[in-house]
């Protein structure tokens, strides 16, 4: 289903969906919203992208990370080499002008399964943190006594919601990828 209108629009819309889903996630503390709906909204962008360009492209563009590693020259210290790697991968990523053979790229791929696992881990651990540090039973909320500029008062429930967000997103992406492979 390759229509050029949707194809062009979705390139711009993916970050918008992401941002909006994060807004919904953090809004969920006092108003309607939260992790579940946030995760669903966040995955809409990817689903549209997969509908237009195919799931492989989604994985390639959003869930693949390649790390450029250079061999350490003899006159450089280890720290300098690390800094160089960092530089190659961040602000000089585009300008890395090494020939293709000399630069080694390591591919890392973020599987939906890892999103699911991370989400579960965050959600379960938020309860454990509350239990260990507040002295109450499991899932007791633990709140900080200061306010962050946009987010408001941080506490363990936001960790739980973040876990749900990642979990829902992982599950939806997994389902989408499996179904569009058929």
């Amino acid at each position: 289903m390759k229509t050029s209108i949707l194809g062009t629009a979705i390139r711009l819309l993916v970050p918008v969906f992401q941002l909006f889903s994060l807004y919904i996630l953090f809004r969920g503390h006092n108003h309607p919203g939260g992790g579940f709906i946030g995760g669903l909204i966040g995955s809409i962008g990817y689903i549209f992208y997969a509908m237009v360009y195919g799931p492989k492209e989604v994985v390639h563009l959003f869930f693949n990370f390649s790390l450029y590693v250079e061999d350490r020259a003899d006159h450089r210290s280890r720290t300098q080499a690390y800094l160089q790697t960092l530089k190659n991968n961040t602000w000089q990523r585009k300008q890395t002008k090494l020939p293709k053979e000399a630069r080694k790229a390591r591919e890392y791929r973020l599987e939906p399964m890892h999103l699911i696992a991370t989400g579960l881990l965050l959600a379960v651990s938020s309860g454990v943190l509350g239990m260990l540090f507040s002295g109450g039973p499991y899932m007791s909320a633990l709140w900080a006594d200061f306010y962050l500029p946009i987010l408001g008062k941080p506490g363990t429930p936001i960790l739980f919601d973040l876990g749900v967000y990642l979990l829902v997103m992982g599950v939806v992406l997994k389902i989408t990828f499996i179904m569009s492979e058929d």
Partner: peptide, 24 residues
């Protein structure tokens, strides 16, 4: 009490989460 009662639920749950991380 809180720890004793939640441990039989937390241990398999954490085990399952770790298994998901080691899916492959």
């Amino acid at each position: 009490n809180k720890l004793l009662l939640i441990l039989p639920l937390l241990l398999p749950l954490y085990g399952a989460i770790l298994c998901l991380f080691f899916w492959f």
